[in-house]
């Protein structure tokens, strides 16, 4: 793997809608003709009530899902025409996901969880072992590499998840309510960590949260309602 981190992409959602179960009785319009541009290297927080489309937007930006209509663009290029394999490759190289429920693989140790994306990228064992150790050290878990997820606290699990998200030096970090299941102490620690690693890497960070403290630390703050951005303000 090239040691140089990929340049953070500029993201654009053009007239994007996402409807689940379209045409059926249970049709859900998760996003409604959303237009949004996210500058390269920015820190954007997103808040809104449950079901307003925050996660859907994150999934579209992170190439986990495709819009029903409209276009998602990375650096001006539409990603709609990419095959599943190409999207997976782009996710692996360029996106770091941090989920609310951590989503560590329960059968792998913390170290192995962090190594997983690097392994998929074909990094030599020595390199990925060294880099995983560095990342665990960076998130303050240098002595917990051999622990399985069920042996870690919630805060520790999320820190491992952050380390995993950083493994392939992605230009884009997507965090979906990363502190939603943590106590206040751990919430602050994780936020500090995210802010620190983002600024150290100049990565784009798109962070979904209910926490006003988080919103206050972002450079830009979006508020969503019913599948649309209803408020878009600059922060610090």
């Amino acid at each position: 793997m090239n040691d140089a981190a990929p340049r953070p992409p500029e993201l654009e959602l053009a007239n994007v809608s996402r409807t689940y179960f379209a045409g059926g009785a249970e049709e859900v319009r998760a996003l409604r003709t959303l237009d949004l541009r996210i500058a390269s290297g920015s820190f954007v927080s997103v808040e809104g009530p449950s079901g307003c489309g925050k996660t859907t937007m994150l999934n579209l930006v992170g190439l986990l899902d495709a819009p029903t209509s409209g276009e998602v663009r990375w650096d001006g290029h539409s990603v709609g025409g990419l095959s599943d394999r190409e999207r997976a490759r782009l996710r692996l190289r360029s996106v770091g996901f941090i989920f609310q429920r951590f989503y560590l693989l329960p059968t792998l140790t913390a170290q192995e969880n962090v190594e997983l994306p690097m392994r998929a990228l074909g990094l030599p064992r020595e390199d990925r072992t060294r880099r995983a150790a560095e990342l665990l050290s960076e998130v303050g878990l240098s002595d917990r590499g051999r622990a399985f997820p069920h042996q870690l606290s919630g805060g520790e699990e999320q820190r491992v998840a952050v380390a995993r998200a950083l493994a392939n030096q992605p230009g884009l970090l997507l965090a979906d309510e990363p502190t939603g299941e943590l106590d206040s102490g751990n919430t602050r620690a994780i936020l500090d960590l995210l802010v620190r690693v983002r600024s150290a890497r100049s990565a784009t960070l798109l962070l979904v949260t209910h926490n006003p403290e988080v919103a206050a630390r972002a450079g830009r703050h979006l508020t969503m309602r019913d599948g649309s951005v209803v408020r878009d303000v600059a922060g610090n």
Partner: peptide
Amino acid sequence: IRRALGLPG
């Protein structure tokens, strides 16, 4: 999770 992380099929 593996697929979300971009692990190949």
